[in-house]
């Protein structure tokens, strides 16, 4: 193969430095970061997730501290105060969907795909940018939630510290769980390419389907249900281990497998379909 570069027929530009450089992954990531931070909706939804998880955590901390002796085990456990993540996962998941489907809804994807016509770097860059944003905002949010809620509980003598067994895993894990759901949302966005469809699919997968399987009679349904992303995730972010659920680290592995599989499917479709 020849590695010679062809001469360009552009006399004026020959002396001047080139205006455009080759596309690479770092530049693609930079572009995606600009895209993320220049949409007001990104910050509004993130803010809602941060505030939602923290406020719900403080309410739980206060209430469960006050009536500690009447609580079910999973509410009494230290991980009980992290349950604001139910709201958080919806917001972070939906924002993940929107980060992708917003491009399809507005036609931006056509500009994106002409700027980076290999396409897969865009998928990877979006996942990296959004994954990092979610981890960087949600892990501190979860730490603040825990410390604040435990301050309420301590007031009633039922506090627990970050250093107690399992707590650090749960607190940091909740932040990581939220980021993984965000990535799952993004992958669904690439697959479905439509905001309403993407959000419905995500909600169906993480909220509706597990509940449907709960009410199906027979044990097989329960043994399948524990492998759903949200159930696997909740095994990971809980300090109590209920029967019929996965162990924490198996839960994490299963959740990551979901995300990886969804991204792989998204990549295949992105490469194969017309924009």
């Amino acid at each position: 193969m020849s590695t010679l570069t062809e001469p360009r027929h552009q006399p004026a530009a020959a002396a001047a430095p080139r205006i455009a450089q080759p596309v690479n992954f770092v530049r693609t990531v930079t572009s995606e970061w600009i895209k993320f931070r220049t949409l007001r909706s990104s910050w509004l939804v993130l803010l809602a997730a941060v505030v939602g998880v923290i406020v719900i955590g403080q309410l739980i901390g206060y209430n469960t501290g006050k009536s500690f002796s009447h609580l079910a085990p999973e509410d009494a456990a230290p991980s009980g105060v992290m349950q604001g993540y139910f709201l958080g996962q919806l917001l972070i998941g939906v924002l993940g969907v929107l980060f992708v489907t917003g491009e399809y809804a507005t036609g931006m994807i056509r500009s994106t795909a002409t700027a980076v016509p290999r396409r897969l770097p865009v998928l990877a860059a979006k996942a990296l940018v959004y994954g990092l944003v979610a981890v960087v905002t949600m892990v501190p949010t979860c730490i603040v939630t825990f410390l604040g809620a435990m301050a309420f509980r301590s007031h009633y003598g039922h506090g627990s510290s970050l250093g107690d067994p399992g707590n650090l895993r749960v607190v940091i894990g909740t932040g990581v769980y939220l980021a993984l759901i965000g990535l799952l949302g993004g992958a669904i966005g690439w697959i479905v390419r439509n905001t309403a469809g993407g959000i419905s699919t995500l909600v169906g997968l993480i909220l509706v389907l597990p509940v449907l399987f709960e009410v199906v009679p027979g044990t097989w349904a329960k043994s399948v249900s524990k492998f759903f992303p949200s159930n696997a995730g909740s095994s990971f972010v809980s300090t109590v281990h209920a029967a019929d659920t996965l162990t924490p680290w198996t839960g994490l592995v299963v959740l990551v497998a979901w995300v990886v599989a969804a991204i792989a499917l998204a990549a295949v479709l992105l490469k194969r379909r017309d924009v």
């Binding site: 596309v23 572009s31 600009i34 895209k35 909706s41 036609g107 931006m108 980076v116």
Partner: peptide, 18 residues
């Protein structure tokens, strides 16, 4: 073009890729 972004930010995002 994404309708939620300014013209300048749209161009900056495109420019960043190259």
């Amino acid at each position: 073009v994404h309708t939620g972004r300014s013209a300048e930010n749209h161009l900056l995002a495109m420019a960043a890729t190259a």
